[in-house]
Design a protein around this nucleic acid. Sequence first.
RNA 1: GGCGAGGUAGCAAAGUGGUAAUGCACUGGUCUGCAAAACCGGUAUGCGCGGGUUCAAUUCCCGCCCUCGCCUCCA
Length: 467
Amino acid sequence: MPAHLTLHDTLTRSDREVSPLDGKTLRFYCCGPTVYGPAHIGNFRTFVAQDVMRRVVEASGTPTLHVRNITDVDDKTIRDSLKAGQSLIEFTQGWTAKFHADCDALNLLRPHIEPSAVAHIPHQIAMIEKLIANGHAYAAADGSVYFRVSSYKDYGKLSHLEDRELRLGASEAASATDSDEYTKDSLTDFALWKARKSEDGENFWPSPWGEGRPGWHLECSAMILEYLGEDFDLHSGGVDLIFPHHENEIAQSCCSTHGKFAHHWMHVAHLMVDGGKMSKSIGNLYTLEDLAKRGYSAAEVRYVLISGHYSAPLNFTMHSLDSARQALQKLAKADKALDRGSALLPTNPGPFAEAWETLLKDLNIPGALGAIFGTLNKLKPAALTSDEAASTRGGLHFMLLALGVTLPPVAEDSTTEVPADIQALAQQRWDAKQAKDWAKADILRKELDAAGWIIKDSKDGFVVLAK
RNA sequence: GGCGAGGUAGCAAAGUGGUAAUGCACUGGUCUGCAAAACCGGUAUGCGCGGGUUCAAUUCCCGCCCUCGCCUCCA
């Protein structure tokens, strides 16, 4: 299975083939979560898109090295840990565990390396020292260290922001009134090291510039250098990270090493809710737990999250979850019809070549899903011979593995236990039906329906299913 | 104001210089006592608006309108 995945590259604004620099392993980095609360489904849209990217690369025969950090030291983690009366470590470990549980529920492959920012402070300090030595950074009077943006001519290359536009940024006014920003030489300079403040509590570390803590942007640069080196294949995150986060990472890394840093940039567009942006104040910010309370599984959430192209905003609604549930059922039924008992061999796309080709073209997941259904509709699973069914099922599962889609049990195979009284009512209805007492049978069926149960008749009997 | 993304059927969402995948919903038929399920069909003369190029545009070009994101620590 040749690797031909192409992805849009934010830096060059073109679709480029994704292939490993070393010819063997695709090494990539994803900006991970800030662990100060449960991640919401918008966060997960990005992680799911990255997961499918990885799965597709691996399915095409190229191993990967997936690095995703945990941001466990920043304003929010410090603020909220103090509020919770916990140590920073204790606090962030709790939320990291929750994040992992959610990731597992969403069928996200665990990164091969998941570095923690607090565990890499020496690496960060080393990088700052290099930047100061190179003339790209300076220590301010208060003990903070800043990156001198004017010292790096390519600054703004990724986000395509000109120097002039940076200065005229809308937030300039807000920054200028921030007292601790006075120490910077230029408003566009950003912090590499933040001097200890009283509101940080006990969360500070020693450094050549005094006690303090690392800046957010630097954490990623330092960990990338440690695990992926000066040059690596691909860097990914949400679109909102393009500026300033990724722009700053490029500046820090390229000014402290001789490498080019990431050779490919993949950015995932935002998830919208009911046509607008998610926000706590509107009350449309959902976590997996919120949706579980409404009866939706993580697999259904995942399906919704992959139902739009990663580069375009995706509108999330409750109806889209219902739609996902039905679509998954349809796939599960097709799978069941294809299962004639032979061993499952998901080694190639088989008859789903069109879906696979589509997927390789800038990770067109919705297009691929459409092609999968289109192929199934054409093939008519139930009509295939055993051999055809086996190869079709292998192909189907090859695609499902690449997409990370897990099939639910087919509704009629549901293991939900039917209460004795319901079963008794259903039996009464069957008896009435056999006696051709349609009126009584219909009344009983309505009763069952009202109680949340559906009857499915066949020639020889009936089954009771939860609604 | 600058930069970027997007506007395709009731909802969601692919795609293409030659006449619109797919999922949900809806709907006709077969089946059924009637249903449900399953199976077989149907459903955008139309792709934000107005021009232009072309034999042909939803797809290319120009202008406009609307939505969303970013503009110093938000996936």
